[in-house]
Design a protein around this nucleic acid. Sequence first.
RNA 1: GGUCGGGUAGCUCAGUUGGAUAGAGCAACAGCCUUCUAAGCUGUGGGUCAAGGGUUCGAAUCCCUUCCUGAUCACCA
Length: 597
Amino acid sequence: MSIEQQITGAIQACISKLYGAEVTTEQIQLQKTKKEFKGHLTLVVFPFLRLSKKSPEQTAQEIGEHLVALEPTIAGFNVIKGFLNLSIVSSCWIGLLNHIHTQPSFGIIPVTEHSKLVMIEYSSPNTNKPLHLGHVRNNLLGYSLAEIMKANGYKVVKTNIVNDRGIHICKSMLAWKKWGNGATPETAGKKGDHLIGDFYVLFDKHYKQELKELEAAGLSKEAAENQSVLMAEAREMLRKWEAGDTETRSLWDMMNGWVYAGFDETYKRMGVDFDKIYYESETYLEGKNEVVRGVNEGILYSREDGSVWADLTADGLDEKLLLRADGTSVYMTQDIGTAKLRFDDYPIDKMIYVVGNEQNYHFQVLSILLDKLGFAFGKGLTHFSYGMVELPEGKMKSREGTVVDADDLMEEMIRTAHEISLELGKLDEMTPEEANDISRVVGLGSLKYFILKVDPRKNMTFNPKESIDFNGNTGPFIQYTYARIRSVLRKAATQGIALPAALPLNVALSEKEVNLIQLLANFAPIVQEAGTECSPALIANYMYELVKEYNQFYHDFSILREENAELQQFRLILSANIADVVKTGMSLLGIEVPERM
RNA sequence: GGUCGGGUAGCUCAGUUGGAUAGAGCAACAGCCUUCUAAGCUGUGGGUCAAGGGUUCGAAUCCCUUCCUGAUCACCA
């Protein structure tokens, strides 16, 4: 039983005795006492005024007096307006720390055979250009959410649906054929995804030029687009691809292979991975059968031209096309097919799509359609909708060359971390390997934390000109705190200080120390909330609060120089547990922590 | 125009089922290394929580109106 539960019970008994009324635990607002006030837990007494028929101060006063008499764990109280601040005896807090200390899981729920299975789709890139900052946010959120769901006791399958077919891929292929001179990643000295991205841009450049010339010859914009030879060739290539033309397919295989090798490198650098990858080229025909079934069952309808539609006006939405007149699929149809495939492949209890908020409408429709088509999982699908990453000038635009490349960004962060570490003399006694590894951990930690600390639902601003900070509310600040604690613990070990399995309860604690125990105990509920709210940011902000508090403690109190042996042991155990929670919490964000930095 | 988000300090962001004097970081200024790592700690200044109304003992938080802003409303994905 937690301290809060114990106190809540005492308050219930107290209200019952004082006012002869039974109140539910929901009616008891017991919260952590604000820093400015004395005490540990605060009861808001306003809801009880109609019972006491007295002023807030008098009510708080009499409840306080009864509580102290009734509940031995309450050492004292003070009243400010309608707030009853309770002080809990030190032994209670040490008991709580002992409890945390002997439970290495920190509230992480183990995954068992009977755990529910959640599939998380994230990343989902196109194979015609390298990953950029938008993908970085997606990947970090997806990976972190997967870790958080695992910590909440779910079996997790991380999945990626690669958009590897379509007109955009053909554009890159065509440009390579026309102007590539047989370039490969090796001959060009470039990652495959970047090479393909360059050809995609090259196609666009030539296409624009062609349009300009046609328009100069007096054609309207629309007519020029219709007469474009380049676009016609790209479309022809797509037709050949769909017909299974051997030459087109092998070119496609080769070029996609380059892209995948590039993506793999980026994913590896970023520290994200997948359990199952779906390729659109293998799934895009799947939805059609479901749609045809939907027509037969009268859920969907055909028009005279043969196209198939869903009427969603009853749900307050529009009509939605599912099959074109020529029988080909659209995006929605493919997603229906992919969903079916996935549920055939895995016993999925919950499906989460990590996709930008620009597709809110799409997923609203998808959920309704899957439900109408009789898929039990349709209604319950979660669209983890996150906001855009914007530059100070607004959205990233590939045409204006303002797209922030994922590989460049990571390298830049690692390089900056290396420079700063050098300047601070942190790398002085390290081997080059150690120095590089710490730079990598710190640089990526900074980037990841910067992105994950923001509420995922909100758009966020990234200024490429101002490099991401390493001071203040940042990843390195949290990593640094961890490294400091580890350093103290190493020193304690060399001094032969042994730590007991449990601390004696009679050590007197400072407010700061109690505060830290309270924060530690908060980790488990935060992890839970991060899962239900789909918000790694909750964990990030908790981490910051915890280490900020710890750094103040570290500054104000000494650990190894403390002469009282029991107090010293208490501080070491407190510190060790904070380090463990930091490590665990950061791992839920996909961020590593260094032993020294 | 319809639908759905967002608007908190100069900048980037927190702010729990409605609770106390709205908090951090960055930037600016002023301090703290003979002591467990100064990527740290302490202090100063900085706010009409977009505006107005309502509910309430109590509103940044809930409701209504208005303003600004973003996304979406494709036979693109």
